[in-house]
Amino acid sequence: MSGLSSSSDAPVLVVDGMNVDIAVPAGALHAVSDVSFSVRPKETLCLVGESGCGKTITSLALMRLLPRTATLTARKIAFEGHDLAKISERAMARLRGYRIGMIFQDPMTSLNPVYTIGNQLEEVYLRHHRGASRKQARERAEYLLSRVGIINAGQRLGQFPHQLSGGLRQRMMIAMMLMCEPALIIADEPTTALDVTVQVQILQLLRGLQDEFNMAMILITHNLGVVARTADQVAVMYAGRVVEQGSAEDVFHNPAHPYTRGLLECMPKHGQAASMGRLGSIPGIVPSLVGNQRGCSFRNRCSLQMPTCHEGQIDLRPARGDHFYRCLLEPGATKPRPVSLGSAA
């Protein structure tokens, strides 16, 4: 899978054929199946999908923070010369928080309430910079807090997490992540709990920091508006698989997969009032991911399903250029008509 051609840098992260299976009493739950993507410096890849689609498991797998019952397999997860699927837990711990930064939806859960902000920021720095003095750490903490837009940074260092508002806490989490120099940020719903105005400000901040520090970002969200406005590349996930992947322009302007089209129709559009008709909806629910997965996982909710949708394995295939989708129909088809076998890639 190739990234955007506009960025000439080598990818920071290349994920190839990643699977995550979770052992449950009834068998193996295929939480993530055959996910491949790559991100380059300064580039943002958005993983988008509804709850249970596997986007969060994908991010946890990259951080190797999966629950014990889960098994991760991949042809390759290449990051700075390491294969994240194979390196030892100790080597992974050195990368986590140092070369790979994380931001979560609720900063309160990742901050320790009994330590001051300054203390926690310095701790991150000192853990990964042996021999650095506490003074150096404090200087960097103060610089980064003001860089992420926190006023009176020096004074804030002495405060505790609960004394900050949601927006400030998220800024602080970003500063904490920057204490080392991550090449890759994994942000899981970083703005979902925030007000709309704060959301825009935080996303802008992340965008600016990406350019300044040359970082790649994997942004996980269910909000299609956030995706459209921040993503260079988009991967739409459904039932543990990527069903459509490509540049934001391709995916939003020419959605190839029926699921992507359905999601876009569900969103109220600017200028659309209820008197003008109902919103589109996708009936049905996500299928069980336990056991053998055959055919298209979206078929039971798809208005275009055909008999062939039940069979075999459906691979990602190109719609146009770097735009891929996982469907037997022509890209963007509105009628159920199987493509001839010859034209499938």
Partner: peptide
Amino acid sequence: SILTPEPGL
């Protein structure tokens, strides 16, 4: 601050 799903903006 409304983020409409319009890429490129």
